[in-house]
Amino acid sequence: MALRARMAAVAMLGVAATTVSGCGYNTIPTQEEAARAAWAEVQTQYQRRADLVPNLVATVKGAAAQEQTVLTEVTKARASATQPKFDASTITDPQKFQEFQAAQGELGMALGRLMRIQESYPELRSLEGFTALQSQLEGTENRIAIARRDYNQAVQTYNTTLRTFPSVIWAKTAFASSQPMQMFQATAGADKSPEVKF
């Protein structure tokens, strides 16, 4: 009799564990953490770009002093992009997210103008340091695009989970403080190539 009671208890425990694991309770925090990890990767790639910019500007300054205006724009844009402190709360605050995206967009456009300058200066293209930094910067821009894409995918999954059944039940009860996260969108003017005038 005791053996039957124990077996029944183990069976009930197994059923309860299966029910709880399949109920979706862990889905929201799991997806929220995945989105936050993707956000951290976006920030890492933007920091990498911010770290490369001063080196690129210094290299170009030596060879293209006449383009001081563009170099000044890049320096200001970098300062603007790295000055505000953006943290994990940025992804749930639409205003802070737009500020972050606008600052990064300005830096991206300024860098685009800087990269186009090198096409007009053969001596600049031949500088080994410039070529290496340009390659690093181009690779960083690609990494940023991939990190933003991955972040948007993680946020889409998370935001959808907050709104769909059965996880919406958990979102309204146990995880009521979980807020939808913001997604990256194209920067205003991104559909136009940066214009460089000489």
Rank of each mutant, 00 (worst) to 15 (best):
T82F: 07
Q83P: 09
P84A: 03
P84Q: 04
P84R: 02
K85E: 09
K85N: 08
F86R: 05
D87W: 02
D87Y: 04
D87C: 07
D87N: 03
A88V: 02
A88M: 11
A88Y: 08
A88H: 10
S89T: 01
T90N: 01
T90W: 05
T90F: 05
T92I: 03
T92W: 02
T92V: 02
P94C: 09
P94E: 06
P94T: 01
K96H: 11
K96M: 11
K96G: 10
F97E: 03
F97A: 00
E99H: 13
F100T: 01
F100Y: 13
F100G: 07
A102P: 00
A103P: 01
A103E: 08
Q104Y: 05
G105N: 10
E106V: 09
L107K: 05
L107H: 04
L107Y: 02
G108E: 00
G108D: 09
G108K: 00
M109Q: 14
M109K: 15
A110G: 05
G112T: 03
G112V: 00
G112L: 05
G112M: 02
G112C: 05
R113S: 03
R113N: 09
L114M: 11
L114V: 11
M115P: 10
M115A: 08
M115S: 12
R116C: 05
R116D: 12
Q118C: 13
E119K: 14
E119I: 11
E119A: 15
Y121D: 06
P122C: 08
E123W: 12
L124G: 05
R125Q: 14
R125N: 13
L127Y: 14
L127R: 14
L127S: 15
L127V: 12
E128C: 09
E128K: 11
G129I: 06
